[in-house]
Computed example of a mutant assay.
Amino acid sequence: MVVIRLARGGAKKRPFYNMVVTDSRNRRDGRSVERIGFYNPMASGAAETLRIATDRLEYWVNNGAQLSPTVARLVKQNAKPAA
């Protein structure tokens, strides 16, 4: 099954997450099919916290990819200000 989830990067105590499309059997930070965005929970000031390529997200969801619970929450939060 193809899943859209967060892959952790960044330094110790300074997380940075890439939103990736991957096979569910791969490791969290392992091989991915495509990077469709990022989430920076430590962003401050004018730094961007969340970026999602919505066209690619829709493409993968329409082709059967499942969202992880955290990604689903972030997508829902991102859609709210745009509405």
Score class of each variant (00 low, 15 high):
Met1Trp: 00
Met1Phe: 00
Val2Cys: 00
Val3Ala: 00
Val3Phe: 00
Val3Tyr: 00
Ile4Val: 05
Ile4Phe: 02
Arg5Tyr: 01
Leu6Thr: 07
Leu6Gln: 04
Leu6Asp: 05
Arg8Tyr: 00
Arg8Thr: 11
Gly9Lys: 10
Gly9Gln: 09
Ala11Asn: 11
Arg14Thr: 14
Arg14His: 14
Arg14Ser: 13
Asn18Ser: 14
Asn18His: 12
Val20Gln: 09
Val20Thr: 08
Val21Ser: 02
Asp23Ala: 08
Asp23Lys: 04
Asp23Gly: 02
Ser24His: 03
Ser24Ile: 10
Ser24Met: 06
Asn26Cys: 12
Asn26Gly: 07
Arg27Ala: 15
Arg27Gly: 15
Arg27Val: 13
Arg28Gly: 09
Arg28Ile: 14
Arg28Asn: 13
Arg28Pro: 10
Asp29Ile: 08
Asp29Cys: 06
Asp29Gly: 08
Gly30Lys: 03
Arg31Asp: 10
Ser32Asn: 03
Ser32His: 08
Ser32Leu: 00
Val33Phe: 14
Val33Thr: 15
Val33Arg: 11
Val33Pro: 03
Glu34His: 03
Glu34Ile: 03
Arg35Ile: 15
Arg35His: 13
Arg35Trp: 02
Ile36Lys: 01
Ile36Met: 02
Gly37Asn: 06
Gly37Trp: 00
Tyr39Met: 06
Tyr39Pro: 05
Tyr39Asn: 05
Asn40Leu: 01
Pro41Arg: 05
Pro41Leu: 08
Pro41Trp: 07
Pro41Asn: 07
Ala43Glu: 06
Ala43Thr: 10
Ser44His: 10
Ser44Gln: 11
Gly45Val: 12
Gly45Tyr: 10
Gly45Leu: 10
Ala46Met: 06
Ala46Trp: 02
Ala46His: 07
Ala47Asn: 10
Ala47Tyr: 04
Thr49Phe: 00
Thr49His: 04
Thr49Arg: 05
Leu50Cys: 10
Arg51Pro: 01
Arg51Met: 05
Ile52Phe: 01
Ala53Met: 05
Asp55Lys: 11
Arg56Ser: 07
Arg56Ile: 08
Trp60Arg: 05
Trp60Ser: 06
Trp60Ala: 08
Trp60Val: 06
Val61Asn: 03
Val61Met: 11
Asn62Met: 05
Asn63Ser: 13
Asn63Pro: 06
Gly64Ser: 09
Ala65Trp: 04
Ala65Glu: 02
Ala65Pro: 01
Leu67Asn: 12
Ser68Gln: 09
Pro69Asn: 12
Pro69Lys: 10
Pro69Tyr: 10
Val71Lys: 04
Ala72His: 08
Arg73Pro: 07
Val75Leu: 15
Lys76Asp: 12
Lys76Cys: 07
Lys76Glu: 15
Lys76Gln: 11
Gln77Lys: 15
Asn78Val: 07
Ala79Asn: 06
Lys80Gly: 14
Pro81Asp: 04
Pro81Ile: 02
Ala83Pro: 03
